[in-house]
Design a protein around this nucleic acid. Structure first.
Ligand SMILES: [Mn+2]
Ligand SMILES: [Mn+2]
Ligand SMILES: [Mn+2]
Ligand SMILES: [Mn+2]
Lengths: 220, 220
DNA sequence: GTTTTAATTTAGATTTGCCTAAAAAAATAT
DNA sequence: ATATTTTTTTAGGCAAATCTAAATTAAAAC
């Protein structure tokens, strides 16, 4: 496996996190990395020649299978170091991320696999996120009914059980679809209705009947 | 404290190790870092403006007190990581150096101090080299009489007790002086004479009477 | 003390990763 | 459909760290 620069690794990891909602755009990635859109375009051309991203001008980008594999390696390093810092060095959970941002770029495979063993093959980092194993396999968060989603926990809509025309009409009016990111702000036990907040929109209310038919996965 | 690049840190550390024998030259440093003399000159100008080295064109360089302080911070990181790798992750002693070369550039002070504590404040790395403490204090190898130096252990002449003309004449004939690097190849119990090898020269023999007056420190 | 050799520095390029400003393309509004 | 706004890309430049080749200085040899 080739060796990638810190900068390349940061881009790959950021794309991995953003692409859960489909194609990643130049501005999104620039914001995520606190850099400029022009820099993103430059880097995308480079990552394309290295076959880590699919990219066509003006059409956004996604990781190739190779790119995804690399992303999972970096995430594995990051989360194992976070676990080490919290568990062994007694860092508090909110301090681990910044240090892990540096440690994650030390690329020795043996180091990471031995660290994993030393830590007892932990499955989750201090934030509850799953740690990919040595083969790059990562636990996919299982889907849960929107009714059962905890308050203020970011989630992504992944399935709708009732697909009748009436249901779809209601969903489209509420601007909810597969991939929509949302969280629950309030639960009203009187009628099981929920106040939910869609990403980058104001709050809205949906009935319990609707919520029962929506399934989500936890968002990272 | 400012933040230094990986490259700057590697230069500073290399100068620290080389300057035990006086002024460091451009070619020496280039060889040590597997780079070109022209690159060394460029970097020395830069480190001079940052007040980390004393440097005048054609006259070699040495660390300033600031530079030495930085060097000891980097060496502390390096050796603590080497200890961690050997002790906790069960790396063999010859594998630790390469990985520590990367880890040493992660610059969080808190990380290193907590790592030190986690490891139980080890005093020596897996190669037997002393680990600087959190204040940058490092154990200076104490001087020992040449008679007592173990076989094949590299050492540097640091003191000569008899400074008579006759003694100095003999020393200069043997090309031995303060800073000379040597090791003992054989000890003859019959007359306490020693076969010693001076760095980059062929072996020679000295009498026990001479050896008794020469004091050395272990070389790193 | 010249001359020759070796060490060091300068000059000029290159690569990586970033930037600003301008141009081009796509999306949105009228 | 056209005009306006937003997004994205291109063009040109900059700083860090490296290089090669040429010039300069210092050291060694004669
Ligand atoms: Mn993190
Ligand atoms: Mn985490
Ligand atoms: Mn080492
Ligand atoms: Mn060591």
């Amino acid at each position: 496996m080739l060796n990638y620069s810190t900068s390349e690794e940061n881009y790959i990891k950021a794309i991995y996190h953003l692409q859960k909602e489909g194609t990643v755009t130049t501005n999104e990635l620039a914001a995520e990395l606190s850099t400029r859109p022009a820099s993103v375009t430059d880097m995308m051309k480079k990552l394309r020649t290295k076959k880590l991203v699919h990219y066509e001008a003006y059409k956004g980008f996604r990781l190739t299978p190779e790119g995804r594999k690399l992303a999972l390696i970096i995430i594995r390093r990051h989360r194992l170091w976070e676990f080490f810092l919290a568990e062994k060095l007694k860092f508090s959970w909110d301090e681990v991320h910044a240090v892990a941002e540096d440690l994650e770029h030390v690329s020795s495979k043996k180091l990471i696999d031995k660290l994993d063993e030393f830590l007892g093959f932990p499955r989750y980092d201090p934030h509850g996120d799953p740690i990919p194993d040595a083969n790059g396999k990562i636990e996919t968060s299982k889907q849960v009914c929107l009714i059962d989603l905890p308050l203020n926990k970011a989630a992504v809509v992944c399935y709708v059980s009732d697909q009748s025309t009436e249901m779809l009409e209601l969903l489209s009016h509420k601007k909810i679809g597969i991939g929509t990111r949302l969280e629950i702000k309030k639960k009203f036990s009187f009628d099981q209705s929920l106040e939910i907040k869609l990403r980058q929109q104001s709050a809205t209310t949906i009935s319990g009947d609707l919520a029962k038919n929506i399934f989500v996965k936890y968002d990272e």
